[in-house]
Simulated scan of single mutants.
Amino acid sequence: MNAGYDTSIITNHHEAALTQARELRQLARSGQFTSSTSGFAPGLAQGNVVILPKSWADDFLMFCQQNPVACPLLAVSAPGKPILDTLGDDIDIRSDVPEYRIFRHGELSEETNDISDLWRTDMVTFVLGCSFSFEDPLMRAGLSLRNIDCNANVSMYRTNIEMNPSQYFSGNMVVSMRPFKPADAIRAIQITSRYPKSHGAPVHIGHPEMIGIHDLSQPDFGDAVPIHDDEIPVFWACGVTPQLAIANACPPIAITHSPGKMIVTDISNDTLSIF
């Protein structure tokens, strides 16, 4: 151990994050927390959620495997099992997401805070990595994140980047955007490259029109944030991408998280880092 290196700081930081994650899930379960989870439980992985009937799950699994940047798998449940033991203590996917979206035959039909009344014994849950997970290492490196500074949801946009289709699921990528000064953008690339399970490195930098985005002040999901004259937009693949694929596939029912409102797990980001 290096002289003066206090491991208790890391331990206390992790324990505080675990406590916050578990408290947040309980607040979501009781309907008291319905906001964006960006910035919560720093150091722990957050996940996008897709829930499908078993008859559609195998094909969606193939879609994820063919598009690991946009759809990095963290967990897949057994049919009908709502408790996700591999992701943390007492995680009930029916109630612990701050807000859910219900799609029927590809159309968004409603948003709700609890899906217990919709749960079926053939439901399969997919949890996909989320860019909120790498926000903590970015901030620990001294980088400022505009969505957190503004207490806003991250900006998300539809693009013209085509995904690799499976039999039923297809569509274009959704991206999240964070503005940085050029030198900070380089550092952000270096840091996020370590976390492929959280979408990894950016898929595009600058020139949003090249990926089909024509107005950064009008995100398709989330909130607009200011971009300063000395900054460039940096784009990461986003876990809202499957929601477009669901709209194209038109399963009889599909359940997802609402954009920016994730399942917060007990998994340390460090365990997902590749170097």
Rank of each mutant, 00 (worst) to 15 (best):
G47Y: 01
G47V: 02
G47H: 00
N48W: 09
V49H: 00
V49L: 15
V49S: 02
V50H: 03
I51L: 11
L52C: 05
P53I: 01
W56C: 01
A57G: 02
D59A: 07
D59C: 07
L61C: 04
L61N: 11
M62A: 11
F63S: 07
C64M: 01
P68L: 07
P68Y: 02
V69M: 12
C71I: 03
P72C: 01
P72W: 02
P72Q: 02
L73K: 09
L73H: 03
L74T: 03
A75Y: 11
S77M: 07
I83V: 12
T86H: 14
T86V: 13
G88W: 02
D89A: 13
I91A: 15
D92R: 15
R94G: 12
P98C: 03
E99T: 06
Y100R: 06
Y100Q: 08
Y100W: 07
R101L: 11
R101S: 14
I102L: 15
I102T: 04
R104H: 10
R104K: 14
R104V: 04
H105D: 12
G106H: 10
E107N: 10
L108V: 06
S109L: 09
S109K: 15
S109M: 14
E110D: 15
T112S: 04
N113F: 00
N113M: 02
N113D: 02
N113S: 12
D114H: 09
I115W: 04
S116Q: 13
D117K: 10
D117Q: 14
L118S: 05
L118P: 00
R120M: 09
T125R: 01
V127A: 00
L128M: 03
L128Q: 00
G129A: 08
G129N: 01
C130F: 04
C130A: 05
C130M: 03
C130Q: 03
F132T: 05
F132A: 14
F132V: 06
S133C: 00
F134C: 04
D136I: 00
D136E: 07
L138Q: 11
M139T: 10
M139G: 05
R140E: 13
G142P: 04
L143Q: 08
L143A: 03
S144F: 00
L145N: 06
R146F: 00
I148W: 01
I148C: 08
I148T: 04
D149G: 02
C150E: 14
V154L: 13
S155T: 01
M156F: 14
Y157T: 09
Y157M: 10
R158I: 06
R158H: 13
T159S: 12
T159K: 04
T159A: 09
T159Y: 05
I161N: 12
E162H: 15
M163I: 10
M163T: 15
P165I: 08
P165A: 05
S166F: 12
S166R: 07
S166G: 11
Q167G: 03
Y168Q: 09
F169S: 08
F169D: 06
N172D: 11
M173G: 05
V174Q: 08
V174E: 07
M177Y: 04
M177K: 06
F180N: 10
P182T: 08
A183L: 13
D184N: 14
A185P: 10
I186M: 08
R187V: 15
R187A: 15
